[in-house]
């Protein structure tokens, strides 16, 4: 009995210490998360001056796509969209796609992936995703070269490249729809 008592005491003390550390780091974790996201936003939206509009996600094909539009004087300048690339080598890939008002890509950031360490991370390199910059739906085939498109796949990571490419294309399509409804109704915060 005494043994169980000691274990309980140790566990309680441990629990108390941890809740202390948790409270101490909770805010910082949030700040770090937000800072990381804001940095990604800045990379994909080089034209963003200070802020984006806070709007609900757009529905597209059974999915909810979070969107971060940039509006100046009531005119839509572009947006960042958080899209999911399906069929990655190891699950889905979360991609942040930046689109400007001409419906061309301004930047790409990989937010989350479970690909092979080292390989998947190459997709986060500008050396690779730079090829998407300035491309739009009408002039660029969003498919890897192996599938008859215009995208150079990462060596030995065709599946990852395919998934990211799909996500980027989806981002452009969703943006086109959003821009269409924006021009009709203006910015909606609902």
């Amino acid at each position: 009995m005494k043994n169980v008592f000691i274990l309980t005491i140790i566990s309680l003390v441990a629990g108390l210490c941890l809740s202390g550390v948790y409270i101490g780091t909770k805010d910082q974790i949030e700040i770090s998360k937000k800072a990381a996201f804001n940095n990604s936003l800045k990379v994909v939206l080089p034209f963003m001056k200070d802020k984006y509009e806070d709007v609900p996600p757009v529905k597209y094909d059974m999915e909810e796509v979070p969107i971060y539009p940039v509006v100046e004087n009531g005119v839509l300048q572009g947006a960042a969209l958080q899209v999911i690339g399906k069929n990655g080598y190891a699950g889905n890939i979360k991609v942040l796609v930046g689109v400007d008002k001409n419906q061309t890509i301004t930047g790409i950031q990989i937010l989350e992936h479970k690909e092979t360490p080292g390989l998947g991370t190459k997709s986060a390199d500008e050396a690779w995703w730079g090829q998407f910059k300035g491309k739009s739906l009408d002039k660029f085939k969003f498919k890897v070269k192996k599938d008859g498109g215009d995208v150079d796949a990462i060596t030995a990571a065709t599946i990852t490249s395919r998934s990211v490419t799909d996500a980027v294309q989806k981002g452009l399509v969703v943006y086109r729809e959003y821009a269409g409804s924006f021009n009709k109704m203006g910015v909606s915060h609902e």
Binding site: S11, A14, G15, L18, S19, Y22
Partner: peptide
């Protein structure tokens, strides 16, 4: 949720 590791292993 931050107690997950400790609770799970126990």
């Amino acid at each position: 949720v931050y107690l997950r590791t400790i609770v799970f292993i126990l």
